[in-house]
Amino acid sequence: MAEKNNPEYDFKWCPGCGDFGVKKALEAAIKKKTIETEEPILNNVVIAGIGCSGNMVHLLEGEQPYGFHGLHGRTLPVAMGLKSSRPDLNVIVVAGDGDFLSIGAEHIAPQAKRNLDVCVVIMDNAVYGLTKGQSSPTSEEGMITSSTPYGKTEQGFDPLAYYLSLGISFVASGLSSKIKDLSELIYEGMIHPGFSIVHVQSPCTEYNNTYEILKGSPKKGIEPLAKPIDESHNPNDLKQAMEIVDTSNIPLGILYQSKVQPTLTQRFEDLTNKSKQKDIESLLKSYSV
């Protein structure tokens, strides 16, 4: 199937939504991957969460990859089932901060410990967009939202520090408006052999417009919150990565990458080398009276 043109599909992102930039970056990254690896676009699968962000899978333009738009919070298990049974595919997860870090949070640690070889792109707007502006794990403490009219009574969650603490083998941070940089991060995440997360600041213009804080405004004398990681940073150095997350607001770039952990696929392959090949007749025979 070439270009998609579907008059029935009725979801639209709001004007200025950060997810537009993420979409362009993802399209470019997939394109680059198909060119570099000479693999067909059909080998790519985009698994989407439920939220404004998850609609990405229907909005991608150009040659279409496969897509999966399932349940709120369950992108990773679907990705795990798909990738572990079809290691030949390039599996990409796209989800929001609520989907990934709240209802789906239980799935992150297990995949980290298995080093599931998929690339996750999180669109963090620190709010629940699709359900119209409730607080999310990454909303700051005290933030006023429709579900926290007197201010949020939980601490804001720091996803980057969390990912690093889990030993996720590729952790990067991006900004939706820096499309070229972001596309490069996603590409690097996709070719990284193991679990990779590209955590993107993707502002919600409707319920939590953070563009100005993130990018700063010289006119108003506002310092940008999001700044590139110093070039001297060695991404193989976990301690340094943790320090960066501790000391800066929103660091942009690759924070950490480890290529030494085996992937889930490799771990399972090791098992198949240990186990004896079975067949149904010998299995049945083992129960003979």
């Binding site: 699968v45 298990p77 679907v78 089932g81 798909l82 572990s84 049974s85 079809r86 799935h107 297990p110």
Partner: peptide
């Protein structure tokens, strides 16, 4: 896997992949 929620969604992912 880590729960029945993961189990059911993982087998769906695998079957979607043809298994």
């Amino acid at each position: 896997v880590s729960s029945e929620i993961e189990a059911i969604t993982a087998i769906i992912g695998a079957s979607y992949g043809g298994k």
